[in-house]
């Protein structure tokens, strides 16, 4: 499983590399259009297009019937029941392509979120760097944080026994793509921290090696399964996805959905797809 997530990271790093210095809207638009077209292709070959077309015609017929017999309550009720029935059939016809699309969608969205949902730190900004341990240590662990030049430890650690957490306050002094080291009982764990202004994969959490954790936080290789650390987290500021003032982790998603739907509508004719 780690190999799949690793491959996705490498793939998206490569795909998005040409867009890293451009406005987020450029890369997002290109990817959204490609995604919209990709979904059309998947739909064309995994759905029963003839049946889809027929069901859509029946739904239209029902709507037409309602307009035509708008003074006949029984006819309207019958038409509405038919529309409902055909809608269920329509959704049923979408089921297979949706299930097939679900897997790549999750993998793609996961990677895009960590490229476009967060921005890198600016010099002078601070963040809280939190390490969650697997076992309660009894007393404050004798852990050490190894920060490279360009970052500094501003305060900490705070030990919270109830959460098995150690937290530091770090400050970005200079731009760079850093690996922060955490050392405990002779073992060293690393976490990526970016003080850069270009688009890159940013990982708020280095997860445990479980499937669910990797699915939720696929932006960084998981921690060793046999290590003492459960997760290492920090908070990146939300990005605006190129829309000034819309600083939110999900702004990119709005752009992605709107552009991919427009692309799907624009290309459904040339690709001969109905939906």
């Amino acid at each position: 499983m780690s190999m799949i997530f690793g491959s996705m990271r490498a793939l998206f790093d490569a795909i998005l590399y040409p867009f890293r210095e451009l406005s987020p809207l450029v890369g997002l638009t290109v990817l959204s259009v490609l995604f919209g077209i990709g979904m059309l292709v998947v739909l064309k070959y995994t759905s029963n297009q003839e049946k889809l077309d027929a069901v859509k015609r029946k739904i239209h017929a029902g709507l037409f019937e309602i307009r035509l017999f708008n003074d006949d309550l029984r006819a309207i009720m019958r038409a509405q029941w038919d529309i409902l029935r055909h809608n269920v059939s329509y959704l049923g016809l979408w089921l297979v392509p949706l299930l097939i699309m679900m897997v790549p969608l999750i993998l793609i969205v996961g990677q895009m979120h960590f490229h476009y949902g967060y921005r890198g730190f600016e010099p002078g900004e601070q963040t809280i760097f939190t390490v969650e341990l697997k076992q309660d240590q009894g007393s404050k662990p004798a852990a050490r944080l190894d920060v490279p030049e360009g970052l500094s430890i501003d305060a900490g650690p705070v030990w919270i026994p109830a959460k098995r957490e150690l937290s530091w306050r770090l400050e970005a002094d200079a731009r760079g793509d850093y690996q922060v080291g955490f050392e405990l009982d002779g073992e060293r764990y690393e976490k990526n921290l970016q003080v850069v202004d270009y688009i890159a994969r940013r990982s708020p959490v280095r997860p445990a090696a479980t499937f669910l954790d990797q699915l939720l936080y696929p932006a960084e290789t998981p921690l060793p399964a046999d290590g003492a650390v459960q997760s290492i987290a920090l908070k990146y500021p939300p990005a605006d996805a190129g829309i000034s003032g819309w600083d939110n982790e999900l702004t990119w998603m709005l752009v992605f959905v709107v552009v991919s739907v427009i692309a799907a509508y624009a290309f459904k004719g040339p690709f001969g797809v109905t939906f």
């Binding site: 809280i128 404050k140 900490g156 705070v158 908070k235």
Partner: peptide, 22 residues
């Protein structure tokens, strides 16, 4: 406010915000 059992430092949590304060 999570109080460190050993050192004069805490972690504050308000909503989604968190701060470390000495």
């Amino acid at each position: 406010v999570y109080v460190d059992p050993q050192d004069p430092i805490v972690k504050l949590e308000v909503g989604d915000e968190e701060r470390i304060i000495q």
